[in-house]
Amino acid sequence: MAHSPLEQFEIKPLAEFHIAGVDASFTNSSLMMVIVVTLVTLFLTGGMRKSALVPGRWQTMVEMAYEFVANMVKENVGKEGKQYFPFIFTLFMFILGCNLLGMVPYSFTVTSHIVVTFALAATVFVGVTLIGFFKHGLGYLKLFAPSGAPGWLLPLIVVIEIISYLIRPISLSVRLFANMLAGHLMMKIFAGFVISLGSIGVAGYFGAVLPFAFNIFMTGLEILVAFLQAYVFAILSCIYLNDAMHPSH
């Protein structure tokens, strides 16, 4: 096998930059991020260029995306969550864009790198924690002591709650990263089967049909996963945000 299934995840520098001692080299990952930002911007502004009272197809898609995330925020955070709607919307569109762009052959999947997903999850975690303490002061700590729990269980519950709270950024980032990694790895491995079987000869051609068909199925599944993981990331951020807004529930 000429190509390793892991080769698709390699970071390849396109231009080296070092600004104030920070490595800011422009890589294939950076390129994809810039493309995602451009495409999302084009999608949103292009759909709204007419701002028609009766929307066309493109505008309907933009409005659907808007209302999808707006409802998500409203249902999970409530009316006070409105000021965080742009952030959640950006988060959703950015992750969705990265996931979907990663499905284009020869492209690179930004969200298949744990450092990217962890940075996003950590941003959400730190932001939510700051909002919680800013809004409720030390009252935010009530989050770790659910009301109605029997007193003798409280020490145990508090410990469990604190651990589950601190593990949030890890679970949030690993979920997205692992889904992207596993999906793309599977597709590459099965594509490798098609190539190696095809090189055997005529008998191999027939054998190659099976992994090829599986890859078609996987492509559909991965597009679903791309949407699903962006949705899960955004909705969990909303739920964490809700905890910060209403800690004692």
Partner: peptide, 22 residues
């Protein structure tokens, strides 16, 4: 470099989304 470009592009998108698109 990934973190630098992630925050750079994310903040740019956040500004565009919150100031223009939404």
């Amino acid at each position: 470099e990934q973190i630098v470009w992630l925050f750079l592009s994310f903040i740019v998108l956040l500004v565009i989304v919150s100031k223009v698109a939404l």
